[in-house]
Design a protein around this nucleic acid. Sequence first.
DNA 1: CGTTTTTCATTGATATATCAATATTATGAA
DNA 2: TTCATAATATTGATATATCAATGAAAAACG
Lengths: 144, 144
Amino acid sequence: MKNEKLNAVVYFLMDNTVRISKKYALKQLKEKGYNITIDQWVILLRIHEKKLQTQVELAVAVNKDTASITRILDLLHGKKLVRRIPNEYDKRKSALVITTKGEAYLREAKEIVEAIREEGLKNISASDIETTNRVLKQMAINMT
Amino acid sequence: MKNEKLNAVVYFLMDNTVRISKKYALKQLKEKGYNITIDQWVILLRIHEKKLQTQVELAVAVNKDTASITRILDLLHGKKLVRRIPNEYDKRKSALVITTKGEAYLREAKEIVEAIREEGLKNISASDIETTNRVLKQMAINMT
DNA sequence: CGTTTTTCATTGATATATCAATATTATGAA
DNA sequence: TTCATAATATTGATATATCAATGAAAAACG
């Protein structure tokens, strides 16, 4: 088949670009004094946006394993950015709340994260980004 | 700025789709009796395509850390798919060769990998894939 | 009711990624 | 030629991902 190589390339580029962007974000945040990964930042943002969700809800929202969520929350908790509040009526659950320190952290790092994202999309048209979004979404559907 | 959300979405989708595709590939390969990850398979393919490279060359080719390469090679070596041959003239280096078992493994799993890749790109036009490739490539450049 | 099944969160084992530090060699410069 | 520097591969610490197994609690149901 003619487009075997072309097909392989998309997968290689996806994987590659994800790794590059995470590395880039980590470096930028660190340089500005923020000891946080982009994955942690995203979880922090989700907790801020929709308070009191359970870890299962959070896992579904970001499409990650609850095991991954537990570990990321442990790290955020260690940095005093997040707290788990036991649910009185269902003792299996914990509600997740962002701390005051977490709010400040989120607000301050937000500009850095946005700058990183813009930098990554430099010289790319909005319509090309939309096409890419559509393709990535369809691929996810195809493999789910 | 209006496209903050749109920008964030590309990063989310990239990360998400990469994870979904790796999970999907792992499951498909496992179901067909191949105990190998897609990352390991790619390394195996590279060693097959260009024999006798050093680990540094391999790392550069796939844009991974030499530490990652060492660990992936350890796993491939444990499965007897790859061997390291010490370089006589430069004792720091090892040449990498695929074993006979590795060759067979590669050949047999190749169809499965291609089927996975095609399945993932179902209902997506070649031109949209090309656009996506171009976008991903530009993003990588922007953040390097 | 009491018993089975589900759900939630955590933990363990493993794979991959990062960076930092190391040991061993090779190379280059004084 | 010796001594400092660079390159190669590995290992350790840590972050994130997977799946599988667990304990505890809630829900379902016969």
